[in-house]
Amino acid sequence: MSVLETYRAPQSLDEAAGILREGNVTVLAGGTDVMPQSRIGKLKLQPVLMSLRRVPELRGICEEGGTVRLGALVTISELLESALVRERLNVLWQACDHFASDQIRNAATVGGNLCNASPAGDTLVPLLALDARAVLVSKPNGKLQERRVPLAEFFTGPGRTVRTGAELLAAAEVPLPPRESVGGFYKHGTRPGLDISAIAIAFVARREGKALRDVRVAFGAVAPTPIRAPRAEAALEGRAPDEPALEAAASAALGEIRPISDLRASDWYRRELVRNMLKRVIDHACRM
């Protein structure tokens, strides 16, 4: 059993980064992953538990110069309530609408969801498809530093990211997609809510006449991390979303995923779902 020694609740990003630098810290945001994981022994609590709840710099959703900044402490409920997210980042909004339960949505944060780095994490897949970046903050020598990592390079394995122990995820930055963008999200669980993805699909593209441009396809729960599917994207780029194009994308996707069998689904079934539902997600998104 781990023994907590200190609880810290910094009131600024600077203070938080400083505490983190001292080491032996478990970072607590909404607690919806930290608490159950520490209870079952999956996560060993460090002597210092640092709550981020009072750090104002980590809050809020704003748009500036074509980039949307989602503070790490933004909850799933806040994303759902945001008109900006609903209208301009609709694929993320759809994912939030499939996220756990109301109670969990009120507590769970974007930053926590990203840092937990579950291959099935609900916001990860749409954020990947939206070309989001992780903003990492540290205070290596008395001064705050920032670095930005494209989400496609952020995840390194189940529960693992490129974030170092001295870094705090401050925000996710999303380039604002053009207004003529289309997008769709699909999560396969065995029930409408409170479920963990057996597979998840996010699709984003721009319509140029009938053709699709800047196609981005991301999958969850079919590989050790959420992934982009560049060959599926290429199969659709510049083409109208007709049956041959969709079929080509689905075939390409099957070469890019590496699903496993677990309690939720067999690898065979995951492949079948990716093939059937990628086509449906794109088809539905383009009909809207």
């Binding site: 029930r191 409408p192 809510g193 409170l194 479920d195 963990i196 309690l263 939720r264």
Partner: peptide, 16 residues
């Protein structure tokens, strides 16, 4: 028993 919890043992939920 592989799923001794309500996450993986799925009772019917209200919307169903």
């Amino acid at each position: 028993v592989k799923n001794p919890n309500f996450r993986d043992y799925k009772l019917v939920t209200a919307p169903e």
